[in-house]
Structure formats: C-alpha cells, structure tokens
Write a protein that binds this DNA or RNA. Structure first.
Length: 339
DNA sequence: AAGTCGGGGTG
DNA sequence: CACCCAGACTT
C-alpha cells in the first residue's frame, strides 16, 4: 500500500514551485499558452519526449493554428503532419476531439468530462484541465511515478506503469497545489525530465531532496521497481523494386490495426522475394515489444502485381503520400544516385 | 489484466 | 542492447 502523504506537503509544494519558476524550460506551449496549444502538446507528448516532438509541434501549429482549422482539415492532412511521430491513433483521436469540441456549446469544465472525449485518458484529462483551465487535478505520468516512488522509497514491484500510476494517484492528489495546479503538475514533470532522471538522478541539485526518502536511503535509482518487459525478435525481408522512375510500394489496408492507410516497402508476404536477391540494406528498429531486423533486397520487376494493395508510385509523388515510420528515411537513402 | 500501438533518446 | 518517454484503447 502506497503512502498518501508526505510529512510536510505545504513545504514540498513551495520548494517545488520556487524551483520551477526559476528553472522551467521555455517551451512553445508555455510561452504562448492556449487551450488548443495545451491539447496538441499533450497529445504529442504521450509516450514521446519533448525533444522529439518539438519540430512536429511547430509544423502542426503553422498548418493548423486552432481547433476550427483542425476540425475543418481532412484526415490525410492530419496524418501527413503526424508522419514519423508514431502512435498514429493519437492523430486520429486529436482530429476527432477537435470536431467534438467545436460542436459543443462550451468547453468541458472538469477532468471527468474531458476524459469522455476521444484520446483523453486520466493523465491527459488532468494535464489539460489543470494547465489550461486551472482545475485542481493531479497528473500522474511516468515522471510523477518515478518521483513519488523515490520520495516514499516505495519498493513495490509493479506489473506495469499503468498499475503504478493508479497506486500513486492518491499521493499525487494529496501533494497537488490547489492554488496553482497547472504549474504544480508541470513542475513535477519538469523535475522528472530534467533532475530526477531514470538513471543518474541529480540529487545534489534537487529542490525537494530534503523530502526524499529514496535519496536519504542512498539508492534513489532503485525506485520505482517495474516488471521487465519481454522483447521478441523478428526478422522481415522487404523488396526494393524500381521501374520507369516508379517505386513498388504496399499500401497498408485502412482496416489494419496499425499504420492503416500508410505506405511501406512490400514485405515477402506481399511479393515474391527470391532468396538469392541481392541485399541493399539491413536495418534494425523496435516497434512496441518487437525488435525487428529488416533486410531490404532488390528484386526483378514482377510480371504482374498479385495484390491490389501493391502499387507503382512515381518518385515525384513520394512526398505526397504518408510513409510508415523509418521507411521514409530508408527510401530517401536508397534513392540517392550512389545508393 | 494483458496486448497493442511508433519511434527515438540514452546509458 | 535494454529501458524509458507529459498514455490510451481494445480485447
């Protein structure tokens, strides 16, 4: 059973907020805050580091500056802007959310109401309502779990981050500043991102070190304890085939659970790849729990296309389609004259 | 409760 | 390589 309070919650709040006011990073959604910018940033930040999403955020705001613009956009535009960021259901849900919000008579005022909207779970509901609306609702993300596990030196072994979040929610709520919940929540996450690192935490400069049982105990890095994930190794062979300035690609069916509607280099499930076909490249990447090795081989031009989802895409059109993940980069590399 | 969904940062 | 990242949704 996790603790639900610290010895001096009011002092903790003050130490945290004073530090945050002095050390917070200048981020686009903080410099020019708005509900829309808060919502878009929170969607992009789900399971994604700030550094990774920053260029996507700038590009997105340039193209779709407000809820009205997003609601009026077509899905292809939305997914193209999201290309490369991953977890594409986030983009579809954000699109749905914009259309739902513009149809409402007023902005939902509570975290519970926000959580009924597409793509909004417990974390996002708390983040959006506290930051943009001043609602006293505590965020519990990976950063907060790590900080709270260390503050309380909680050695519980959690199945996964979801169950840990649930366990620490009461403590997070008890520590929340009701005067300034938005800054408090952002301060917790900022502390986790810039000081209370998963490994090598910077305890010597930590503003709440005096409140931290994990630090006092000497091994803050040992918290939180999470069950190890099982990674499965997978190998995929893909085909590279050019003809008359066109590239053979596979369009993932829109009914597919993952990467629906996106394009990719055809795998050997879609087209015959001779075992002796020359290897052009070997690439490794991870998708969720799979460690994938992809071998790209040059194949002869097939006499006919066996699958309706296979198509010849002119090089000039490659920039207009949405490509699955690293395929964009691989294709760019392999299309170079010396590649 | 367990599985699934991307891609990149970092020790 | 392993683990994590301002998680949410489906089964």
């Amino acid at each position: 059973m996790a603790k639900t309070s610290l010895k001096q919650p009011a002092v903790f709040q003050r130490d945290l907020l004073v530090w945050y006011q002095a050390h917070r990073r200048q981020l686009p959604w903080r410099e020019a805050p708005s509900l829309y910018r808060t919502v878009v940033s929170e969607f992009m930040l789900q399971q994604t580091q700030v550094k990774t999403m920053l260029p996507y955020f700038a590009r997105w705001m340039d193209a779709l500056p407000d809820f009205a613009a997003l609601a009026a956009a077509d899905e292809a535009t939305v997914l193209k802007l999201w290309e490369g960021l991953g977890y594409y259901s986030r983009a579809r849900n954000l699109h749905k959310l914009a259309r739902a919000l513009v149809a409402l008579p007023e902005t939902p005022p509570t975290a519970a109401a926000w959580q009924q909207l597409p793509g909004i779970g417990p974390y996002s509901a708390a983040a959006i309502t506290s930051i943009a609306l001043g609602v006293a609702s505590a965020c519990v993300d990976g950063n907060v779990v790590r900080i709270l596990a260390r503050l309380t030196a909680d050695s519980t072994e959690f199945r996964d981050s979801a169950s840990a979040s649930k366990v620490f929610t009461p403590l997070a709520e008890s520590l929340l500043s009701h005067e300034n919940p938005g800054d408090h929540n952002q301060a917790m996450m900022e502390l986790g991102a810039t000081v209370c690192h998963r490994r090598n935490p910077l305890c010597t400069i930590c503003p709440v070190r005096a409140h931290c049982a994990g630090c006092a105990q000497g091994e803050p890095e040992s918290f939180p304890r999470l069950a190890a994930k099982k990674i499965e190794k997978v190998s995929i062979t893909r085909a590279w085939c050019e003809r008359d300035g066109k590239l053979l690609l596979h369009r993932i069916p829109t009914t597919s659970r993952r990467l629906a509607g996106q394009y990719e280099l055809p795998s050997d499930e879609h087209v015959l790849v001779p075992a002796k076909a020359p290897v052009l490249a070997v690439r490794k990447r991870g998708i969720t729990r799979y460690a994938i090795t992809e071998t790209i081989k040059r194949i002869p031009v097939p006499s006919s296309l066996p699958n309706a989802d296979l198509m010849w895409v002119p090089r000039a059109e490659l920039d207009t389609i949405t490509l699955s993940g690293p395929h964009r980069r691989w294709i760019t590399e392999l299309l170079k004259p010396d590649g």
